[in-house]
């Protein structure tokens, strides 16, 4: 464990608490893409199945359980408890355009041709693009509640912090994971536009609004 990864994980944890806080305090999931949340639940379930047969550490175990449980809980909140506040007519990104290519990529790029390794690869590729329905929704509405932008910023910072972690591990542990690194770079790149508006507007105390 190094500080980059620790802060990355903490940022990921924070993003989920911010999202829960947004839903509970506004009693609404307006502005949140159900599709993106469903993709994250898929990502965590596909990747963390190793919970059942591989012990890494208490930290690792707790985080995995938390990410699976919280993502399913968020889906429940959106689908049942706050269902009327979710507007499917603006959450229109076609997820099959993400799922299909990720399956193909996992079949092409993996470390071993076994079910867990294919699922791991698939989850890495899917995670890198899972934010697209959310960004698409943001693009369509052109604005976002401030708390929603904090959620997105914390979520984007998580994978961005994994990049220095990989560089650090390359030098200290001689570890290279080309699949995770490539996907992580793509994932972070997708946030660049958002980060720009977040830093120049939200952090200056203005509302998050995209230029018309």
């Amino acid at each position: 464990m190094n500080l980059f990864r620790l802060f990355g994980d903490l940022s990921h944890l924070a993003s989920i608490f911010i999202l829960l806080q947004k839903i509970q305090s506004t009693r609404s999931c307006r502005g949140i893409s159900f599709k993106t949340q469903a993709l994250y639940a898929t990502v965590f379930i596909a990747r963390y199945l190793d919970l059942f047969y591989e012990w890494v550490s208490l930290y690792n175990f707790t985080m995995k359980v938390f990410f699976i449980a919280s993502s399913c809980y968020i889906l429940y909140l959106m689908k049942y408890k706050y269902r009327p506040t979710h507007d499917p007519s603006i959450d229109t990104f076609r997820v099959e355009y993400l799922l299909g290519p990720c399956v193909v990529l996992a079949l092409l790029f993996h470390y071993k041709f076994t079910v867990p390794e294919l699922l791991w690869s698939f989850s890495i590729f899917l995670e890198s693009v899972a934010i697209l329905p959310q960004l698409f929704l943001l693009q369509r509405t052109g604005e976002a509640e401030t708390i929603t932008t904090h959620y997105l910023a914390a979520l984007g910072a998580y994978r961005a912090l994994y990049i220095p972690n990989w560089i650090y591990r390359y030098f200290t542990e001689d570890m290279v994971d080309p699949i995770a690194v490539t996907a992580g770079l793509v994932q972070t790149a997708l946030y660049l536009d958002f980060f720009y508006v977040y830093v120049t507007k939200v952090l200056q105390g203005q509302k998050f609004e995209l230029p018309a």
Binding site: M1, R5, D9, H12, D50, E54, V56, S57, N60, M63, K64, F67, Y111, Y162, N165, R169, E173, M175, V176, D177, A180
Partner: peptide
């Protein structure tokens, strides 16, 4: 070993 290290990431 690389595989094991890979799985300690979240």
């Amino acid at each position: 070993p690389v595989e094991q290290k890979r799985h300690d990431e979240l």
